[in-house]
Design a protein around this nucleic acid. Structure first.
Lengths: 196, 196
DNA sequence: TCGAAATGATACCAACCAGTACGGCAGCGA
DNA sequence: TCGCTGCCGTACTGGTTGGTATCATTTCGA
């Protein structure tokens, strides 16, 4: 599939050089294809950019579809969920995509929305359903499930992840990222778990 | 001061068009100055970019130096702090700067570091000192003060602020942002405050 | 008033940009 | 063998880029 090859090359170049810093010729050159073919698939640079974001989002959008068992203790499920969350979020494809989308949010607001809709929003909706059930069972204090999920995600991303977003090397220390998650689980449970 | 005028114009254009999307000619044109003069102040585009980031950071770096009174109740201080924090963070200059720095983090890692050093790191250090004192007084459960501060900041930024970063209009609703802060204070106090 | 320093206007450079035009080459079904 | 489709290579356009060179003008202290 020629189209996919162009998207792959464009993804890597957009990640490395940003939108405005990437040239169509370099994309065509990277895949060994010709510019003519590139333009038959994507009528403009913007369309290619949208296709790249779409491709990653549809590829990784379900990556966070971790199953959330209702019968296991909340703390254990949250810890697993948090660890998978931040390990995916600090990995290259999603982190670079996030940087790209944030950096171009002002010029491509539409892409930022589809990014959020098909990524974070879906994941949070799934987690919120789990939280709602845990609330109904009385294991978690009742409240707004979505707010609880956002807070848990915020707690997980409050520490080293911020360094990762800014490209600092400290943000890549996986064991310390796990510490952040442990602390997030601890704080979340103190605030939301009903006393036994 | 001619130099400052160039920096101001460059800031607005970088915010609107990104680094690669902004031309030196447009900057010189915006201030009504000539390219020759521009190059006498900044030997290259990268230097201008660094000067812009430096200017904003030194201008707003102390904007979050809110005083944190030790004698008032923790919840009240945290609420005030949180509200000022997110109101500054969602305002145009700092939000646009954040987007710019994140977007260019891969190509200008040095700028991301100075941004963090002179901005978030200093603010968090001040807040951590306040938390440490509150812990020493027994009002907050003892633990890592820096982690507590990061968690509080994470909680404040866990809700609508994420929308603001992505440029979505929902993220600019100030009253709902205050709700996020209230919820953050509530959760934080449940997890960190010692029982009365 | 004088003269140096700072600034401005403009033309220019080589390189590069997104996007187009056009001709040719390989495969492939009929 | 024919014609079609998909792809490639390259040269081109009109425009822009960061950066330089040249010269005129303004500013301002002495």
């Amino acid at each position: 599939m020629r189209r996919k090859a162009f998207i792959d090359a464009a993804r890597e170049l957009f990640f490395a050089n940003g939108y405005a810093g990437t040239t169509m010729s370099s994309i065509a050159g990277k895949v060994g294809g010709s510019k003519t073919t590139l333009w038959t698939y994507f009528p403009s640079k913007e369309d290619l950019f949208a296709a790249v974001v779409d491709d990653i989002v549809s590829q990784y959008g379900d990556a966070l579809a971790i199953d959330l068992p209702l019968d296991k203790p909340s703390a254990d499920v949250l810890r697993d969920f948090g660890n998978i969350l931040i390990s995916k979020l600090t990995a290259t494809p999603l982190l670079s995509l996030y940087r790209l989308v944030v950096g171009e949010a002002e010029r491509f607001p539409h892409l930022a929305e589809t990014f959020y809709d098909r990524g974070p929003r879906r994941g949070k909706a799934r987690a919120a359903a789990w939280v709602a059930e845990k609330m109904a069972r009385g294991e978690l204090r009742s409240g707004d499930p979505m707010r609880a999920v956002q807070q848990f995600a915020g707690l997980c991303q409050a520490g080293l992840y911020q360094f990762a977003v800014l490209g600092m090397s400290e943000g890549r220390d996986l064991s310390r990222l796990r510490d952040d998650v442990d602390a997030a689980v601890d704080t979340f449970c103190r605030a939301w778990q009903t006393q036994a």
